[in-house]
């Protein structure tokens, strides 16, 4: 479809189409799309559990050598391990989850950009549905296995549960914000494998998924704790354990949510121009 810069930008949508009902429908759609493959989700849960058991033993050995490391006791460390394994699915820690890269390559993104809802919110709503499904089906089994095999702890008291719920939502928002930027980068890089690998390494290593960030030595630990990936895993895990103050942790997550969402808005604007230029 030939676009020219003189054609009015399609970003003015009729307000009745961007109602909360639309987004609720998109969340439900994202949920149901993943619910169509329960076998795949349960297989993922099984694998995440097996790795959780293996990682737990390593952490137990480390905490036996150095009790109280990073402010955790052994029970905290093992709980941390299974909680982070439970995050792999919903937080999509190995990357991807968004259909945007394929749609940029095929050119279908041009259609997405003229839809009566902004691409970023649309993708966010669908991804939220995906995360909700995977939290239930891929997140709960590792926690149950951890409780049965190692006696991991659960948050006590409604205040901690409320903080955890808020922390999970914020962690998801940061995870989405980061993956959205990675997905948009396809518009500039014909081959996205490099960005994906970079994102995978940064997300697994600096989120706390592999080791609690408190173990990172010196300045590396301080830097890692301030980066956005810490808001995806380390922060909600600390809210689960009750090992971090609730207010500052949520504020930290909110900060990265806003920063990444803002960059996402700029990125969406940039690809809109790029699509117009390529089309015309």
């Amino acid at each position: 479809m030939p676009h020219s810069p003189h054609v009015p930008s399609p970003c003015r949508h009729p307000p009745e189409d961007t109602t909360p009902a639309l987004y609720a429908r998109l969340v439900r759609h994202g949920f149901r799309r993943h619910a169509a493959y329960p076998g795949a989700a349960l297989a993922g849960a099984f694998t995440n559990t097996v790795f959780g058991v293996l990682r737990a033993y390593t952490l137990i050995a480390l905490w036996q050598a150095r009790p109280g490391l990073a402010g955790y006791d052994v029970a905290d460390a093992v709980t941390f391990c299974f909680v982070t394994q439970a995050f792999i699915g919903p937080m999509q820690l190995f990357g991807g989850g968004l259909g945007i890269p394929e749609r940029i390559r095929s050119g279908d993104i041009a259609l997405d950009l003229v839809r009566p809802a902004p691409l970023q919110l649309w993708a966010f709503a669908e991804d939220l549905g995906r995360a909700a499904y995977l939290l239930a089906v891929r997140g709960v089994p590792p926690l149950l296995a951890g409780a049965a095999l190692f006696g991991i702890t659960a948050p006590d008291g409604p205040a901690r549960w409320a903080a955890l719920a808020a922390g999970l939502l914020a962690a998801f928002a940061v995870s989405f914000g980061w993956r959205y930027l990675v997905a948009l980068s396809v518009c500039w890089l014909t081959d996205d494998r490099g960005v994906n690998v970079l994102s995978l390494v940064l997300t697994t290593f600096f989120s706390g998924m592999l080791l609690p960030l408190g173990l990172f030595p010196g300045a590396l630990g301080e830097v890692a704790a301030a980066l956005p990936w810490a808001a995806i895993v380390q922060a909600p895990a600390d809210l689960y354990l009750g090992t971090a103050p609730i207010g500052p942790t949520l504020a930290f997550q909110a900060f990265w949510t806003v920063v990444l969402a803002g960059l996402g808005v700029l990125g969406t604007r940039a690809i809109r121009h790029r699509v117009v230029i390529q089309g015309g």
């Binding site: 050995a61 490391l69 080791l211 030595p217």
Partner: peptide, 23 residues
């Protein structure tokens, strides 16, 4: 890229031994 991905596991071992002398 494949080398960098594989190096993550090595990084984990090095961080573990930044905290302890024996596992």
């Amino acid at each position: 890229f494949t080398t960098v991905t594989a190096a993550v596991d090595l990084g984990v071992i090095l961080v573990v031994f930044a905290n302890t002398t024996a596992l």
